[in-house]
Simulated scan of single mutants.
Amino acid sequence: MTRVALLISGGGSNMLRLVEAMQAEGFARPVLVASNDPEAAGLAKAAALGIPVAAVDHRSFGKDRAGFEAELLKPILAAQPDVLCLAGFMRVLTPDFVRRFEGRMLNIHPSLLPKYPGLHTHQRALDAGDTQAGCTVHQVTAELDAGPILGQARVPVLAGDTADTLAARVLGQEHRLYPAVLRRFVAGDRSLLQLG
């Protein structure tokens, strides 16, 4: 069975949806949840579901990204994942790290890529007057938020939306999209999935 490791930085809501789908449907097995923040609330949630967890505090490495990644790699490699899912992992990974998992690392991003890579995606969509927003699951490459797109889900931008109200609606779609794309990905399907 496909072994999946997940990287988080916070509450882990996308990680939980992925784990729930894997455990309920049996299309893959979650073997590790790791974080760059030992206080990340998602770690306790993963541990409560019986998944091994690990934390490597990026702050103790200062600007030494390679040193941080070397430590982060230890529990990841020990878990022997076939696929790595970034689920709200808020660190930019170096090209060396990405190359190690190229073709088998996924990320979810809260915009309709290629629009709005990086941060503040919902405010940027509002500022641009967009009528639609959404989220994208893509393969991770060395260029930020630029890898092959595997799935997208759309939501309408409503009159009176704020970045927070739009983010909440997009998050609901993230929770639908990411498990659906992962299910297809482990089955070898790289075609584009469009939701809503």
Rank of each mutant, 00 (worst) to 15 (best):
P95T: 09
E69T: 08
A34S: 14
N107Q: 10
L7R: 03
T121V: 05
L171H: 10
L7F: 03
R169G: 02
G10Q: 12
F68E: 05
A41D: 13
L18Q: 10
V186Q: 04
F89D: 05
L43V: 14
D127Y: 07
L84I: 11
A87T: 04
R190T: 11
E69S: 04
P179F: 01
G10H: 05
I76C: 06
P81C: 10
A146I: 02
F97V: 14
K74P: 03
L177F: 02
A54F: 02
T162Q: 14
D64W: 10
Q123W: 10
F97E: 04
V157M: 02
F68A: 15
G67D: 04
R190M: 04
L193Q: 06
R91D: 14
G42A: 14
D130M: 13
K45M: 13
A167T: 12
N14W: 05
D127L: 09
D164M: 07
A46C: 06
P110Y: 00
S9P: 07
L72A: 12
P148M: 14
D37T: 14
A44F: 07
D145Q: 06
G88N: 06
Y116H: 11
Q80N: 13
M105T: 09
I149A: 08
E69A: 01
A28Y: 00
F61S: 04
G129C: 12
A180V: 06
Q132F: 11
L192T: 15
A87E: 13
G62C: 11
L49I: 13
Q123C: 13
A153R: 00
N36D: 12
R100S: 06
F185Q: 02
A167F: 13
T2P: 15
G88M: 03
R99G: 09
L7P: 01
M15W: 01
D189Q: 10
V140D: 00
P38W: 06
P117V: 03
Q80I: 07
A40D: 03
P75V: 13
L32F: 00
V157I: 06
E69W: 00
G134A: 04
P156I: 01
R190H: 10
A70H: 06
G188Q: 13
V186Y: 00
L192Q: 12
M90I: 08
D82T: 08
